[in-house]
């Protein structure tokens, strides 16, 4: 694990990169990294995240700045800019049921090829997918998702990179921290090793590649 500035962290991300971004309606999103993506004008991004947040918040900032080319998410209904860009064919949007999305990411992080879920069977979500019958029940084969980078926000990070999260700001963060080639983390507080008790570490240090320094 290396400690870097937000500027250095984002400088590693090329245009056209595939990014997972933690957060749920902008809660638990690494805002400083998103601000820096906008400042450095990283464009043609492929974004995997739960939702499109709202303008001015979380990944919503990337739509404000028109930096996204492809979005995989479960919900974009509260971001009119993302909706407009989708309707105008400026971004390709793949809408995925939320439970399927998180399991596809989990599978990507756990070395699985995909998961079988009953969600979406018999609906338009089924189109182009392989239905598999198990014990008389139909499941869809949903393939694993991975990314070049995961942008993660934690509540506590220690000097080694162990992470703990706060309340509903946990959401997709620990799952995404398993599913990317490079994991970049911001934290509300960076604390000495030992402050986060072993039982309270949610994301173990070896998963974290870069911790963005505070202050």
């Amino acid at each position: 694990m290396r400690t870097v500035s937000a500027e250095e962290a984002v400088a590693m991300i090329p245009n056209g990169a595939r990014l997972m971004v933690g957060g749920f309606m902008g809660v638990g999103t690494p805002e400083r990294l998103l601000d820096e993506l906008v400042r450095q004008q990283k464009s043609e991004l492929t974004i995997i995240c739960n939702d499109a947040a709202v303008p001015g918040k979380g990944v919503g900032k990337l739509f404000d700045a028109a930096l996204v080319s492809t979005l995989t998410a479960s919900h974009i209904g509260l971001n009119p800019r993302a909706q407009q860009q989708m309707m105008a064919n400026k971004i390709a949007v793949d809408l995925v049921p939320q439970g399927t999305l998180v399991e596809r990411i989990r599978a990507g992080g756990c070395g699985l090829g995909g998961v079988l879920t009953p969600t979406g069977a018999g609906t338009i979500v089924e189109e182009g997918k392989r239905p598999i019958e198990i014990n008389g029940k139909t499941f869809l084969l949903e393939t694993a998702l991975r990314s070049d980078f995961a942008l993660i926000h934690a509540f506590l990070a220690d000097y080694l990179g162990n992470l703990a999260y706060a309340l509903t700001a946990r959401n997709f963060n620990p799952v995404m921290a398993m599913a990317a080639d490079t994991v970049i983390v911001t934290a509300e507080h960076i604390v000495p090793v030992g402050v986060i008790a072993p039982d309270h570490v949610v994301t173990p240090a070896p998963l974290v590649d870069y911790l963005v320094a505070n202050g």
Partner: peptide, 30 residues
Amino acid sequence: PHLTDAGGRPISALPGASTFDSAMSFGLIR
């Protein structure tokens, strides 16, 4: 700021509440 409902609006947590990640949350549902 870290305690919101699924619409992103502030809520409170009752005594005895628990929090977890989205994989657990949808494991509970599915």
